[in-house]
Design a protein around this nucleic acid. Sequence first.
DNA 1: CTTGACCTGTGAGCTACTCACAGGTTTAGA
DNA 2: TCTAAACCTGTGAGTAGCTCACAGGTCAAG
Lengths: 143, 143
Amino acid sequence: MKVQEVAKHLGVTPDTVRYYVRIGVASPERDPANGYRRFGRRDLTNLRFCIHARQLGFSLDEILEILGQAHHGNTPCPRVREIVGARMQDIERQFAEMQQLYERIQRAAKAWETMPDGEPTSHMVCHLVETWEQDLTTESAAS
Amino acid sequence: MKVQEVAKHLGVTPDTVRYYVRIGVASPERDPANGYRRFGRRDLTNLRFCIHARQLGFSLDEILEILGQAHHGNTPCPRVREIVGARMQDIERQFAEMQQLYERIQRAAKAWETMPDGEPTSHMVCHLVETWEQDLTTESAAS
DNA sequence: CTTGACCTGTGAGCTACTCACAGGTTTAGA
DNA sequence: TCTAAACCTGTGAGTAGCTCACAGGTCAAG
């Protein structure tokens, strides 16, 4: 299979497939006549795994690590379970951070509702932003 | 004020302050004797605005745009309100995406609980990932 | 006078692609 | 048989917002 067929087959762009090849997710043979990539079964397997794993939040480094393990005949499943666990925690943390950001914006927007616009001065760019009451103390202490 | 004093004052690292100067958030004078940055009132104002705005989810490009507006004596407040509105929508969207990802992972992890590990084969790297039931159809159709 | 803490600019690294460029190949149709 | 469109190639740069490394100059305390 050529790059575009593979891409269509897997639901990604040819550029993405080429990128994955570039970093070593797959290593297709080359057609000696024209240098085109010829994807075999193993290449497709690796690419499919990569795409699925990405959809589960795996990083490309983690994917390469797992492919390496599998290449050596070791079962990558324990590592996979480990990564998935870590990823869930990451997401929970990001989730909390985003919620904080959202609430911060919301508080600001609400506080600004009744405030007029103002001209910038030498000690203030936008009074909306600069007079906004933030509890930085709480947040920087928490981090 | 020198770079480290400013950094401490604003609660960021000296590197961050230097970076902000680099991209034009502030343009401190230089001490002719040694070339050190000397931050004045306006520089501090800009940096403080920048840091606050970042905490509200503004991009550095947006911040530079606003600083430019303010520099020309125009009130940036309407633009600020606009950006804040856009940012809230962005966050809501990201929120939904992350939730999807989280649920996807959760479903996978749950489905794997009772599955044993397996050896990698030529057509499968990790059966946990590759036999995982995804409703890609739903998701790709939705996007 | 030394030592350590500061300062300088520049450039690279991080993630996961995505796009641009310049050029070679294949394929379908006239 | 020719041509034009659609494919393929590798390489390099761009994205966001820092962060760190490097090599070297400066300053303050003891």
